[in-house]
Amino acid sequence: MGIIDVNHLSKQYFIAKRQEGMWGAVRSLFHREYITKTAVEDVSFSIEAGEMVGYIGPNGAGKSTTIKMLTGILVPSAGDVTVGGLVPYRERQKNARQIGVVFGQRSQLWWDLPTIESFELLKQVYAISDQQYRKNMDTFTEILRLDEFYQTPVRQLSLGQRMRADIAASLLHDPAILFLDEPTIGLDVVAKERMRTFIQEMNQERGITVILTTHDMADIERLCKRMILIDQGRVMYDGGLSKIRDRFGKSRILIVDLEKDTQLQVQGAELIRSEGNRKWLRFNREEITAAQLIQQVSIQADIQDLSLEEPEIDSIIRQMYEEGLSVG
């Protein structure tokens, strides 16, 4: 039994069909037709205490819906969820005490109040003892430099500051599990790095289990040993990063700038993108070497400049989608 157990979890939404025309609008007041949309379908996984897991997938894949079921906001249509031994939607308040939640796009803090006051209110909301509060505040202030904007109302914080405040707020009551929904969205490079370091520290030093949804593959590469890949409500892959890299990571991309726009005919590589004189060629390093490929190209056109691109997780995932292959 892990700290989070999800078994055959499904969630269907019923969406009211929009009726066309004037009469349609009136009619829909009294009678509505619904279409069923499956957001999450038969998802199962188990997460051990202390793990840090990336939960990823394209928009509308069902990431948020899953998180909402794990936090007790949504009731599943079918299947079981337990978080720390609790069924979140049945014991929502109890569950709330053992989890911390950060929604990257929406602050959970009191918008018009100086930031510090939100922390003080949360102290009351979670009935945090003075000692625990002081200890956590000292730690977070030191790492996240919260003191820079204690007295600033939340609405006036920069996005980076707001995220720092939000993540500190979510950890104030020492939750065992932390849900991060897009924690680095919209942040600049420095702020992203600071956020990642903090998350990593909390995971390693405090043993907090972290579930992270993100669009940014660098987050995953940097933070997670394990990732769960979801698409159209189904789990496509659940496992280590290295396995994916081995399976799909053999490809390289050669980017060449040619003297003039030329139709390239190359063997053992695929032209995946072309922008004027610049061409992107994907090849498998076990079938052809970069040198051989460059040679082929140079026969057909003069090369001005070239570079090789290592595969990144997002391109791997894109490839997975394109090829429709499942590794799991």
Binding site: K68, T71, G72, I73, R92, Q93, K94, A96, R97, I99, V101, F103, Q105, R106, Q108, V125, Y126
Partner: peptide, 14 residues
């Protein structure tokens, strides 16, 4: 609509 209602559901109060 803007999703802030969820915050009332992730806290340990009614």
């Amino acid at each position: 609509l803007n999703g802030t209602f969820d915050r009332f559901l992730v806290r340990p109060i009614h």
